[in-house]
Design a protein around this nucleic acid. Structure first.
Length: 424
RNA sequence: GGGGAGGUGACGGAGCGGUUGAACGUGCUCGUCUCGAAAACGAGUUGGGUCUGAAAGCCCACGUGGGUUCGAAUCCCACCCUCCCCGCCA
């Protein structure tokens, strides 16, 4: 959520910045019109309330009965006017709030312009796509042949877009989770294990609602919502809190499954484990002082890249253009790994600075100095990494001609020393 | 599922129709003392909004939303949340 004061004080700057992301300036003007009307009503009603407060205080001290009754009658009329104005005010406030919630975050000035993802800029690449002396297979073929991914039984249990990992496949994923968390702890993150279902309020605090309502799973009986990413519970860890400056930065990492209801088009990404309704992810998340947030974004990116590097994966990092930037983000790096079997780059991490966009909605503040007025923190999030796609990349990159898969060196201690996954 | 208690400032905890935006304590800030520190003592310290060049002022907030009243943290209603006991499950 954007700061109404910023919009009020620098409307042209806001219009220009949002215009880069394709937002119609009329939307900003609408918010401003509500704001002006709201403030006018507020002035009127506050004046009346001040009058009533002063007179009521007098009434409490009056001894003359006749004068007292006259004042009471007078204030009764004032009270009616106040009630009417308060109703108008509430209506305008609601309209303003709704209009404000529709506005996305301002892209950072450094973000490249562009209407869609084809304008994203590759800012780094490490490694070259591996060449094979045989035709590399996609992971779904490898997985079935090795009997480590069972698509049919996943469907039997839960329907399309669900799968079962088995044997060394399940173990490989578990090893990755463990290894990633250990790596992030070394990188300075603090591990948390959070609930995987949360109250509705948390979904608002992390700005999942109202926009992503259709993509969320929910238990109707108890009104608990399944998390679509660890970002949701971790953001809400500090909802409605005022942090002390010396606590910052707070850097968290968390493993959670992620549940997404999105109704995916039938023909797209149907094969394999690239896109499912349930997937695992290790997430990195930060609460930081505003002046450090862009430096922290670089750290987030570097840490996610390091995760790919240590797995020996070929990866590239893209800076998203204005047209591809998410709703809440001011600046985002996507990290993609090369999957030779499918012959495509897979997004395994997305690292974003959202500045105070979530903090304002979740009311997360800090005191710049002891005793000072609280200000909103900046928050950042980055995957470190999404598991299914990491699994895909490992399987497809480390495959051998006989269909076996070499276990990346970093993971072997987590795999009981196993160095190759073969059909058992 | 049954029964009970309660939601107040950064935190603990009073107040139960009219100088209560809130006693008292803790924490924090500043000062005195000290070579320094601790202790002790003194002063200060809620958040949001609006207005202003800035201040002052004014408004709102004691879980949330309604109601009663000239006036509500205090009374009434609804909802949300938390805790405790019993049962159930592990």
């Amino acid at each position: 959520m954007l700061d109404i004061r910023l919009i009020r004080e620098q409307p042209d700057m806001v219009k220009a910045a949002l215009g880069r992301a394709g937002v119609d300036p009329a939307q900003i003007d609408a918010v401003l019109a509500y704001d002006e009307r709201r403030r006018a009503l507020l002035r009127d009603v506050e004046q009346l309330k001040a009058l009533r407060n002063a007179v009521s205080k007098e009434i409490g001290k009056m001894s003359d009965a006749a004068g007292r009754d006259a004042k009471i009658a007078e204030m009764r009329a004032v009270g009616d006017r106040i009630a009417a104005l308060d109703r108008d005010l509430a209506a305008v406030e609601e309209q303003q709030q709704a209009a404000l919630m529709e506005l996305r975050n301002l892209p950072h000035p450094s973000v490249p312009d562009g209407p869609d993802e084809t304008y994203n800029v590759v800012v780094a690449q490490e490694g070259e796509p591996r060449t094979f002396d045989f035709t590399p297979k996609p992971h779904w073929e490898l997985g079935e042949a090795l009997d480590i991914i069972d698509f049919e039984r996943g469907v039997k249990l839960s329907g399309s877009r669900f799968y079962v990992l088995k044997g060394q496949g399940a173990r490989l994923q578990r090893a990755l989770i463990q290894w990633m968390l250990d790596l992030h702890i070394q990188q300075g993150y603090y591990e948390v294990y959070t609930p995987f279902v949360v109250k509705e309020q948390c979904m608002w605090g992390a700005r999942q609602l109202p926009k992503f309502r259709d993509n969320l799973y929910r238990d109707v009986e108890d009104d608990l919502w399944l998390v679509p990413t660890a970002e949701v519970p971790v953001t809400n860890l500090h909802r409605d809190e005022i942090l002390e400056a010396d606590q910052l930065p707070l850097r968290y990492c968390a493993y959670t499954p992620c549940f997404r209801r999105e109704k995916m088009s039938a023909g797209r990404d149907v094969r394999g484990i690239k896109r499912g309704h349930q997937f695992d992810k290790v997430e990195m998340y930060m609460f930081v002082r505003p002046e450090t947030s862009y430096d922290e974004l670089e750290k987030l990116r570097a840490d996610a890249e390091e995760t790919c590097r240590r797995l020996g994966l070929t990866f590239r990092t893209k800076e998203l253009c204005t047209g591809d930037l998410g709703f809440a983000a001011t600046r985002t790096y996507d990290i993609e790994v090369w999957a030779p079997g499918q012959g495509e780059w897979l997004e395994v991490s997305s690292c974003s600075n959202v500045e105070a966009f979530q903090a304002r909605a979740a009311n997360i503040r800090y005191r710049p100095t002891p005793g000072a007025r609280p200000e909103y923190v900046h928050t950042l999030n980055g995957s470190g990494l999404g598991l299914p796609r990491t699994l895909i990349a490992i399987m497809e990159n480390y495959q051998q001609a006989d269909g076996s898969i070499v276990v990346p060196e970093a993971l072997r201690p987590y795999m009981g020393g196993i160095d190759v996954i073969r059909r058992s």
